[in-house]
Design a protein around this nucleic acid. Structure first.
Lengths: 224, 224
DNA sequence: ATAAATGTTCATATTGAGTTCACATGAAAA
DNA sequence: TTTTCATGTGAACTCAATATGAACATTTAT
């Protein structure tokens, strides 16, 4: 069950948002200002916060700041009154993830909420994404739009390392040290073979290319 | 984090209960009567309610009734004063899950709370459906369109776990810890045998496949 | 108590990731 | 151009991880 906390002092708007979100299958909590919100977040499990900026007592900025300083890593959707560019900028500065301008379109709200949740879930299972490519460290999987490739451990770690620092050149020694471990004593050419296998597995990928830097080592180049 | 709401007008008893429950690692909220309780439940995420029956304003019966009518499906542990058989019967009628008689033994309370939580958790995730396949946790049964397979416990739990998080790789250790329990000391290879048996039982299923990830563990891949 | 079902262990076969090797290729140095 | 040397590549090899059949142990049902 996804819990969304609505922080809004305008009771009517709050009611409307709650109704719409519940309608869409979310579990909704509510607070009338930032202080109340913090209390609820402390006590309950909250997955996403939708907060107005202008509120009595603790406002939306203070709330976001407080949340960022604690280690709750909640996605926050801000609501700014009218087109106050100042507000927007400030909101982003303190760590908002997205924002909407009043008057709020309820469809848009649903859309943004879904997007934020999707993002935060992806972020939680965490890994690396390069354009359309996504590497998942836990499943040793490389996903592109069409396919999902499961790699052997060593190959995956190697690709992960290279892609984590595109353009950076890694010597075979560096690679061996990090992926094989300092102590082991395997031939450096083994790296070549892994590179070769990665190359053939991803030869049809347009997004990146493993490049040999003669005399030094390998690097990855992001294309497109 | 498990949130327990204690609804009790006797401040001393309330304090004691809160202290004991917190001691046991729960997050505790409290209310002094049914009305307050409903408010809190509305705002916060509550996992279990412990409620006295006799209270000013809205009493325990009214509270349970209100909760059942709304679609909160919370486990409720009732507290009755003395051995009032009338109370017991009435409490159960309106949907209580368990009850205790005053004076309350704090150990007993802990035990009942744990039991209720366990039950409600199982009840909440008792069913899993993947496409046309449906797993029923209570009957240890896997149903597809044509057939219904009854599995031995261990096999079922293993499959259930894997199917609950498709694509996620589980190490043998993780599997043993969760299904066999942290303490037991059975050979990790036993997992292999269960996997093998699952594989032969479901080899003709088109919907999923158990995949070994060499050096890491197993995962399930949803096909079609 | 006995049989049947489930769970575990074990011995052996099979597999495949990781490694090595031998030779091919191609860039840079001479 | 020729030579040299780093890298590419296909294939063989190795060995630990996994698969598997069957025996053995334990629990559950009859």
């Amino acid at each position: 069950m996804v819990n969304i906390l609505v922080v809004e002092d305008d009771r009517n708007l709050q009611k409307l948002m709650k109704a719409v979100l519940r309608q869409q299958g979310y579990n909704v909590l509510s607070a009338n200002d930032g202080g109340e919100a913090l209390e609820i977040i402390d006590k309950s499990h909250v997955d996403l916060v939708i907060s107005d900026i202008m509120m009595p007592n603790m406002n939306g900025f203070d709330l976001t700041e407080a949340l960022r300083k604690s280690n709750y890593n909640l996605p926050i959707l801000m609501i700014t009154a009218k087109e106050t560019l100042e507000d927007k900028r400030k909101g982003f500065l303190v760590g908002t993830d997205d924002y909407m301008v009043k008057p709020i379109d309820m469809d848009e709200m649903g859309f943004r909420v879904a997007a934020l949740l999707r993002r935060s879930r992806i972020a939680n299972e965490a890994r690396l994404s390069i354009g359309e490519i996504e590497l998942n460290y836990d499943t040793l999987t490389v996903k592109s739009k069409e396919e999902s490739v499961l790699l052997p451990k060593k190959e995956f770690y190697l690709l992960f390392k290279l892609l984590s620092y595109p353009k950076q050149i890694f010597t075979r020694q560096q690679i061996m040290d990090e992926i094989w471990g300092m102590d082991v004593d395997t031939d450096e050419r083994t790296v070549d073979v892994h590179i070769k296998r990665l190359r053939e597995k991803f030869s049809h990928f347009e997004e990146f290319e493993i490049i040999t830097v003669r005399g030094l080592g390998y690097k990855v180049e992001i294309k497109i």
